[in-house]
Amino acid sequence: MTIFLLVISGLYALFTFVLWITWLRIPSVYPPAQATDGPLITVVIPVRNEAGNIRNLLHDLSRQTYTRFEVIVADDSSTDATLAIVREYAQSASFALRPLPLTNERTASPKKRAITQSIAIATGDLILTTDGDCRVGPDWLASFAAFQVQTGARLVSGPVTFTDERTVFDALQTVEFSSLIGSGACTMQLGVPTMCNGANLCYVKEVFAEVGGFAGFDHLASGDDEFLMHKISARYSNGVRFLKSPEAIVRTGAHQTWRGFYNQRKRWASKWRAYESYLPSLLAVFIFLCNVVPVVAVLGWWLNYLNGNVTLLVIGLKLIPEFLFLRQILVFLQKKSSVNVIPMTQLVYPFYVLFFGLAAQGKGYHWKGRNLT
Rank of each mutant, 00 (worst) to 15 (best):
T2G: 04
I8Q: 04
L14G: 13
T16Q: 04
I21N: 11
L24G: 12
I26L: 13
P27A: 10
Y30S: 14
P31D: 12
D37V: 15
G38A: 07
G38R: 08
V43K: 04
P46N: 05
R48M: 11
E50F: 02
A51S: 14
G52E: 08
G52H: 07
N53H: 11
I54S: 02
R55F: 01
D60H: 11
D60P: 05
R63C: 09
R63T: 07
T65A: 06
R68C: 11
E70T: 12
I72A: 03
I72N: 03
L83V: 10
R87K: 15
E88L: 09
Y89I: 01
P99W: 05
P99L: 02
R106D: 09
R106L: 14
K111C: 02
Q117S: 10
Q117P: 00
S118W: 01
A120T: 10
L126P: 09
I127D: 00
D139L: 06
F147L: 09
Q148N: 15
V149Y: 02
R154T: 12
P159I: 03
V160L: 15
F162E: 03
T163C: 08
A171Y: 07
Q173N: 07
V175E: 03
V175R: 00
S178V: 09
S179N: 08
I181V: 14
G184S: 06
G184M: 07
M188D: 05
L190R: 02
E206R: 12
V207G: 05
G212R: 06
G213V: 01
G213I: 03
A215Y: 07
D218Y: 09
H219D: 13
L220P: 00
I232K: 00
R235K: 15
R235N: 08
N238M: 00
V240F: 04
V240E: 00
R241F: 04
A254V: 05
Q256E: 09
F261Y: 14
Q264K: 14
R265Y: 06
R265P: 01
R265M: 12
K271A: 14
S277E: 15
S281A: 14
F288V: 03
V292H: 04
V296S: 01
A297G: 01
G300M: 11
G308L: 04
N309E: 06
T311M: 14
L319D: 05
P321M: 15
F323D: 08
R327T: 00
L330V: 10
V331S: 07
N340A: 11
I342L: 00
P343M: 08
L347P: 02
P350H: 01
F355C: 10
A360L: 11
G362M: 10
